[in-house]
Each structure stands twice: as structure tokens, then as C-alpha cells.
């Protein structure tokens, strides 16, 4: 059994600064485009900062390094957050970010594996967790101690494929697999209406070591990730309660947050709100 991962103690304040930098760069991308999945991106920023600047093992110069930890963004339309973190982590040149969503860009509105550092094609939802199980098994066969982290959204809990994968992960004892379930409470048509709750109890019942935290609390995030390092024969699930638009109060209050248009006149105000929130 591979040894439990040990990492230096996290610097929570530094990680919060990273998350803020991600939010700022997402806002910049929205400025260029005028529309996008900015609310979800702002909500997941803390989780991505904790992963990329503390928990994950990777080398941006070698995106296909076999011993890297894998991060799978299952929710492909969260791409804006992915590109922000890939630029911050050194996979992408920040100058490329303004091409987000434009014709011919390597940074499409929904993730494809044309972007360095993107592990899976993500836009058809419900594909992530099953592939994560397969990767976890492959790494185990090869005797690598790399781990697999898979983000998925609450909407993806509607898909049968997610629960097939949940059973698979438990059946095969994938303790090198961590599912990060972004429960932001919204879907395409508005608030989550399908009876997916209680999410944490469901994963527990499916045989996963499950934690439930405030996904916008950096200290809670790093603590949960640390607890998820144990190799006890069970896959790990972390249920993240996040707020869409986190960091920009006006966006946090938007009723239709799934796909947001940011007018030229609004952008500067939102940016000011973001900076004020951090201050």
C-alpha cells in the first residue's frame, strides 16, 4: 500500500491570495468576452487554489509527466476557472487568457484536451467520475503513488453515470481517488430541483469516505484535502458547499447565475466589489 502523502503545512493566507488572483483573472476573461460561466468559476476558485498551490503534484513543463497527480474537471463549462488556474500554475501564458471563448482559441467555453493541463474532454456532463475511477485503477496497476482528483457539479449528480462510477470506485477500493463535488445549488434551469440531497449521506452509503465543508473556506479546504490523503481502501468524497459568484456580492445575488452576461458598464463595479471584498 503506498504511503500516505505528506506535504508541508499549508499557508492559508497565501492560498487565499492565490484564490483572489484566480478570481481577478476570471473577471478579466469575462471582460473580454462579456459573458460566461463566471459565477461558477468564482465559486470553485478556492478549491482550485488549494489543489494547485498546495495539494497536487505536477510539473507545468511536463503536462504528461506519468507521476503527476491528475485533476479532472468534469464540469467542462467551468473552463474559465480552469484556464485561470492553469495560467497561474504555469501551464498557460497569461497573455492567452483574453482569447477565452473566441473562435480558434485553445481556451474554448467548454474544456477540450487541446489545452495543456486539461486531462479530459469535459462538456458532456457526467463523464468525469467514471474516467477518474479508470485512471485511479491504471495508476494503481503501474504502482504509481499519484492520485486522481475529480471535480464534478451538483447537476452531474442527476446523471446515472455518476452513480455507476461511484459504485465502481468503491467496488475497486480506489483510495487514490478524491471526488470534489461542487454543490453550488444551481443548474441550467435555475435552482437544483432534483432530490439529490443529502449528497454526503449518499456518497457515504455508496462506500466513500465522505466529508462536507464550506467550499469557500480555505482552512476547511486544506484540512479536508489532508484528511482525504489516508489510504484506507476507500475512495474519498468532499462535498463542497460553494456560493456562485463568491467574492462579488452583486453576482452572488443574481437569480440567473448559470450563464451570466457582464455588461461593459457593470464590469468595473464588479471588479471594485471583488477588490473591496478582499480588502
Amino acid at each position: 500500500m503506498p504511503a500516505t502523502t505528506t506535504l508541508p503545512a499549508p499557508d492559508v493566507a497565501a492560498l487565499e491570495d492565490r484564490a483572489h488572483a484566480l478570481r481577478r483573472s476570471m473577471m478579466e476573461m469575462t471582460r473580454g468576452k462579456g459573458e460566461g460561466y463566471i459565477a461558477q468559476g468564482l465559486g470553485i476558485a478556492d478549491c482550485l487554489a488549494a489543489l494547485y498551490f498546495h495539494e497536487l503534484r505536477y510539473d507545468p513543463a511536463r503536462p504528461d509527466w506519468p507521476d503527476r497527480d491528475r485533476f479532472l474537471l468534469s464540469t467542462g463549462h467551468y473552463s474559465i476557472a480552469m484556464y485561470a488556474v492553469l495560467a497561474e500554475a504555469g501551464y498557460l501564458d497569461p497573455d492567452e487568457l483574453p482569447t477565452y471563448g473566441l473562435n480558434g482559441s485553445r481556451l474554448p467555453m467548454s474544456t477540450f484536451d487541446v489545452t495543456p493541463g486539461v486531462e479530459i474532454v469535459g462538456g458532456s456532463l457526467g463523464h468525469g467520475l467514471g474516467q477518474a475511477v479508470g485512471m485511479a485503477l491504471g495508476l494503481r496497476i503501474d504502482g504509481r503513488d499519484s492520485r486522481v482528483f475529480c471535480e464534478l457539479s451538483d447537476g452531474e449528480l442527476d446523471e446515472g453515470s455518476t452513480w455507476e462510477a461511484a459504485m465502481g470506485g468503491a467496488t475497486f477500493g480506489c483510495d487514490n481517488l478524491v471526488a470534489l463535488i461542487d454543490c453550488n445549488g444551481i443548474q441550467a434551469d435555475g435552482p437544483v430541483t432534483v432530490a439529490i440531497e443529502p449528497v454526503a449521506d449518499k456518497f457515504t452509503a455508496f462506500g466513500w469516505d465522505t466529508q462536507e465543508i464550506d467550499g469557500n473556506d480555505m482552512a476547511a479546504l486544506v484540512a479536508a484535502l489532508e484528511a482525504a490523503r489516508s489510504r484506507d481502501g476507500k475512495p474519498k468524497a468532499i462535498v463542497l458547499r460553494t456560493t456562485p459568484g463568491f467574492g462579488v456580492p452583486t453576482l452572488m445575488g443574481r437569480p440567473r447565475a448559470h450563464f451570466v452576461r457582464v455588461g461593459d458598464d457593470e464590469w468595473a463595479d464588479f471588479m471594485a466589489e471583488l477588490e473591496a471584498d478582499r480588502g
Binding site: G34, G36, T99, G101, N103, R106, M109, F259
Partner: peptide, 14 residues
């Protein structure tokens, strides 16, 4: 190389 014209943007609402 990506275009930068507003006209060429992906229309999220299709």
C-alpha cells in the same frame, strides 16, 4: 490563432 473580433465570439445562447 484566435480572432479577437466581437462578431466572431461563440454565442453562448446559440
Amino acid at each position: 490563432m484566435a480572432e479577437t473580433s466581437v462578431f466572431g465570439q461563440t454565442r453562448g445562447m446559440g
